[in-house]
Every structure is written in structure tokens, then in C-alpha cells.
Amino acid sequence: MQMKKAIVTGGVSGIGEASAARLRADGVEVITVDISSSADYPLNVSDSGAVDSAVAAIGHIDILINCAGVLGPIKPLVELTNDEFQKTFDVNINGIFYFCRATIPSMVDHGWGRVINIASLSGKNGTPNLAAYSASKAAVSALTKSLGKEIATTGVLVNAIAPGFISTPMNADTSDDVIDDLTSEVPMKRSGRVEEVAALVSWLASDECSFSTGAVYDISGGTATY
């Protein structure tokens, strides 16, 4: 059986790095895309031309994991500039759009594919002072639901994961007091681990996941309310 090939965006840190490691352990050939120079393809996912060029060079893939994301500015909505708001959307949702558009036609032609988009609990519940991030992650969930239904009969499944508070480099600079406040709101009283999210990525990217598309899976230690 031929080895499956995956692209993992944001693949050199956090959830992306853990997902890449887990897929490799599953026997998948993984290609990382990240702004970091240590990625297999260093690029900004908000650059549609760079995305198209990278996908053309890589060729057909079976699995797309969209992990690249930014937290964006932490401030009240009324203090956000146009540029700050737009840049958050450029990475968090436009990057997913560009990669899906570039890779899905080949998956459909082959009759099999898996797309997993990393959304966020903030996109469901909204987080104060993170309006751009919350709105962009809500868009990730909506795009996933729409696209999953759009290509539901093709063999290509599209799902999203909405993590709650996960210990990642994105929040490495967060103060201990804020971390304590965040974990106190989690019924399990701890933050999640990137390996736990990667385990869900692994299943969604596998043949075992065969009757789920357009879904958003919470992984939040019980924080999710709907």
C-alpha cells in the first residue's frame, strides 16, 4: 500500500508540530509548511501565490492539516486597527482557503482525502479582547461545515477541531496569573496538551474516520457548552 502524504501548516511548533510527529508515527509522509526557516516549505500561508507554488511543487497530497494561526492583538475591539484585524484573518482563515483550494481538486480526482482545520473554542464562545481571533476562528468552523457538505460524496472528508486552552508556544508568554485563571475555568482543572489534540488529528486523518464530515470537534477539558 502506497504511503499517504500530508501537508501540515504551522508544522514546526505547537499543535502543528505534534500533529506532524503523530502522523509520521502513523506511517504518513509529512511535509511541513511554516514561516520558520526550519519548515520543509518556509512561507506565509497568507500569500496565495506562495501557497499555489508550494502545492504545485509538492504534487498530490492525501491529507491537509491546517494548523497555522496567529492570536492577533489582545485589546478591546474599538482599539483594533484595520491592519491588525485584517492580518489576523489573512493567516487564520485566508490561509486555510488558499490551501484547500490548491489541494482539494487532486484529492477529489483520487477519490480520497482528509482535511482537518484547527479552529478554536474562542470561535464558539468568543473571548473578550480577542475579537479578531474569535471571529476568524468562527469563520474556520463555518468554512469547514460548508466545504464538508459541498464535497461530501467525493471521498474527501473535511472536519475541524476546536481546542480550548492548550499549552502551546502561542501562549508561552502568558503570565502565571492568567494561566491560573484560564485553567480554573476548565472543569478538568488543567490545560490540554498538544499530543492530545494530535491524537484527534490522527483519527480524523485516517480511514477509520469514514462517516464524519463538516463537523467541529471540541477538545476542551469540558469547557465547551454546546
Rank of each mutant, 00 (worst) to 15 (best):
105 P>T: 12
105 P>W: 07
106 S>G: 09
106 S>T: 10
106 S>D: 13
107 M>P: 06
108 V>N: 00
108 V>C: 03
110 H>M: 10
110 H>Q: 14
111 G>I: 04
111 G>M: 13
112 W>I: 09
112 W>D: 02
114 R>G: 07
115 V>F: 12
117 N>R: 09
117 N>K: 02
118 I>R: 01
119 A>K: 00
119 A>T: 03
119 A>E: 00
119 A>I: 02
119 A>V: 01
120 S>P: 08
121 L>S: 05
121 L>C: 00
123 G>H: 09
124 K>N: 06
125 N>W: 06
125 N>Y: 15
125 N>R: 07
126 G>C: 06
127 T>N: 13
128 P>S: 11
128 P>R: 03
129 N>Q: 07
129 N>C: 05
129 N>D: 10
130 L>E: 15
130 L>K: 14
130 L>W: 08
130 L>R: 08
130 L>S: 13
131 A>D: 13
131 A>F: 07
131 A>M: 11
131 A>Q: 13
133 Y>L: 09
134 S>C: 08
134 S>I: 05
136 S>T: 07
137 K>N: 13
137 K>I: 10
138 A>P: 02
138 A>N: 05
138 A>E: 02
138 A>W: 03
138 A>S: 15
139 A>I: 05
139 A>D: 06
139 A>K: 00
140 V>N: 00
140 V>Q: 03
142 A>G: 08
143 L>F: 11
144 T>S: 12
145 K>L: 02
145 K>R: 14
146 S>G: 12
146 S>A: 15
147 L>Q: 06
148 G>F: 01
148 G>D: 01
149 K>T: 02
150 E>Y: 09
151 I>W: 04
152 A>H: 11
153 T>A: 15
154 T>P: 01
154 T>N: 04
154 T>A: 05
